[in-house]
Design a binder for these strands. Structure first.
Lengths: 147, 147
DNA sequence: CCTTGACTTCAAGTTGACTTGAAGTGGCAC
DNA sequence: GTGCCACTTCAAGTCAACTTGAAGTCAAGG
């Protein structure tokens, strides 16, 4: 597969693929002339990266979490730690979601008068979540998975 | 309250408060000499901003959650939409967490050979691709809430 | 009155994750 | 064989959300 093919199959722009390669997150199998060639393995790898991204890990972290070179030599302790971390995030987001859901149908005249909403506010304010939860996510609705 | 007091009570750095004011997210009640003074209202407002951030709204979006007069005017439809969004994120994170948990104890020679792990990967690949979920979130464990 | 230091402004820097642009190369359909 | 254009590199730009630094102001305590 050349870079365009990978882009087509995954929806990840070629520029991003080059960027990822530069960063060591993916590896091309070789070159055909100047052009990179990729094996099917890269698709798995990109799925893994997508997963890490979705979980809020930086590319750095993701790279460290899933094999340095492509071989799955993963620190199981780290995985467990990350899982716990994720678990806490999930609980926060769940509380958040429930609060939002309630607020969306709350009968109070203004959200500020709703005890539930105020409780949510308190939770948000009390450092519970210094965590962002999904900033940009602007990718044109490309082909996206055609594997 | 001066800016330091607000910072102390909310854990939001003074630089951030100035930044927020510049962006129109908060307003000072006046000045004492050069120094800004804030009313207690700003604390609610900052809680709301924290909420917005936690829910994954951009500052731009969060700013829009306030009516022009400064009264919070939260769009219930938007809340519902965000709640759904959050819900999808939660499901992904849950899959991720379960995958990590499993991977941490998986007996397969490599994670890639583990069917469970591969299933996780599949989930990640389908749709997750364009979604960020928690980029930086580095706030030193300051005083944080002393209201 | 004078020093102190917390405040002020404004510009520039930072970080992560990319994207964009200019300039060059070479595989392949014709 | 040759022209096209998808690919290449590399540097620079972008974006959000702040932070940092330099230089200046001024309320208050001694």
């Amino acid at each position: 597969m050349d870079i365009a093919e990978v882009a087509r199959r995954t929806g990840v722009p070629a520029s991003t693929l080059r960027f990822y390669e530069e960063k060591g997150l993916i590896a091309s199998t070789g070159r055909h002339g100047l052009r990179r060639t990729f094996g099917p393995v890269v698709l798995d790898r990109l799925a893994l990266i997508a997963l890490g991204r979705a979980a809020g890990f930086t590319l750095e972290e993701t790279a460290r979490m899933f094999a340095p070179d492509g071989k799955p030599r993963v620190d199981r302790q780290m995985l467990a730690t990350k899982a716990d971390e994720l678990d806490r995030t999930i609980r926060k987001l769940t509380a958040m979601r429930d609060g939002l859901k309630h607020a969306a149908v709350c009968p109070a005249r203004s959200h500020m008068e709703c005890p539930k909403f105020r409780r949510l506010l308190g939770a948000a304010a009390s450092g519970v979540i210094g965590a962002r939860a999904k900033p940009v996510a602007k990718r044109k609705p490309g082909p996206e998975r055609a594997k």
